[in-house]
């Protein structure tokens, strides 16, 4: 059942209970939210409020126990395992808090990986990797392996990896939590800049007030529910 809307993401009574030794632990308790293409949205809230769970439901990494998610008009629960894999590959870029990169692949190969899965020809892959490395200020690092670059640099490569195949949506779960605040701010400015120029939609979770300040929209979760939904004028 697909939905004919213009929204990028629509959630309807989205809910997730974990089961911890038989007893249900409600992590997300009915979220109705729409995200428009091109938004730069922060999901905030105290620890345990359900931010990670919500993002995982949106990307199909986790299956909801109630409600529905449409992404690009596709009902995620209607997709099979491989369809879901391919859907993520083609439409979602991921940035996690840490361990974003495959240690046996160098910077170029990490960034190339998704395009490889997509069957993008070699020449085009090279060009795009070159471009994006310049964009994130890491030209010349192509052949370095992840353990040999700093945490901030790793996160930049992760951003490049997430964006290089031009997905509609970038999901980032606390992308700056492991970084010094200065580096985090830099990274965030870079993401917002990319958002403005490319029109890619960013949805990220954070504890970081600095991140919230840079968002167009801040959705606050509390106990698995939306407590507040602030839209701001773009600065």
């Amino acid at each position: 059942m697909d939905k004919g809307t213009d929204h990028l993401i629509v959630t309807e009574s989205l809910a997730k209970d974990y089961f911890d030794g038989g007893a249900p632990v409600p992590a997300v308790r009915g979220i109705d939210l729409t995200i428009e293409a091109g938004e730069f949205t922060a999901i905030v809230g105290p620890s345990g409020s359900g931010k990670t769970t919500f993002l995982n439901l949106i990307s199909g990494l986790d299956a909801p126990t109630g409600g529905k998610v449409w992404l690009k008009d596709k009902l995620l629960s209607g997709l099979s395992g491989n369809e879901l894999s391919d859907f993520r590959r083609d439409h979602i870029g991921f940035i996690f808090q840490a361990y974003n990169l495959i240690p046996v692949l160098n910077v170029r190969e990490n960034i190339e990986y998704i395009m490889l899965l997509q069957g993008v020809p070699e020449k085009e892959r090279r060009e795009r990797v070159g471009e994006i490395l310049k964009e994130i200020g890491m030209a010349g690092f192509e052949r370095r392996f992840p353990p040999k670059i700093s945490g901030g640099q790793q996160q930049r490569v992760a951003i490049a990896r997430a964006m290089v195949s031009r997905p509609e949506l970038i999901l980032a779960d606390e992308p700056t939590a492991n970084l010094d605040s200065g580096i985090g701010a830099e990274l965030l400015d870079m993401m917002r800049d990319l958002n403005r120029r490319t029109g890619m939609t960013f949805l990220f979770s954070t504890h970081d007030p600095m991140v919230m300040d840079r968002a167009d929209r801040v959705v606050t979760l509390h106990d698995g529910r939306v407590a507040k939904d602030d839209r701001r004028a773009r600065t």
């Binding site: 990307s59 990494l61 395992g81 491989n82 894999s85 391919d86 859907f87 993520r88 590959r89 083609d90 979602i92 870029g93 991921f94 996690f96 361990y99 974003n100 495959i102 990986y113 998704i114 899965l117 990896r161």
Partner: peptide, 9 residues
């Protein structure tokens, strides 16, 4: 990670 970013099983 590989699975999250779209690698088939």
């Amino acid at each position: 990670l590989l699975k999250a970013i779209g690698t088939r099983a």
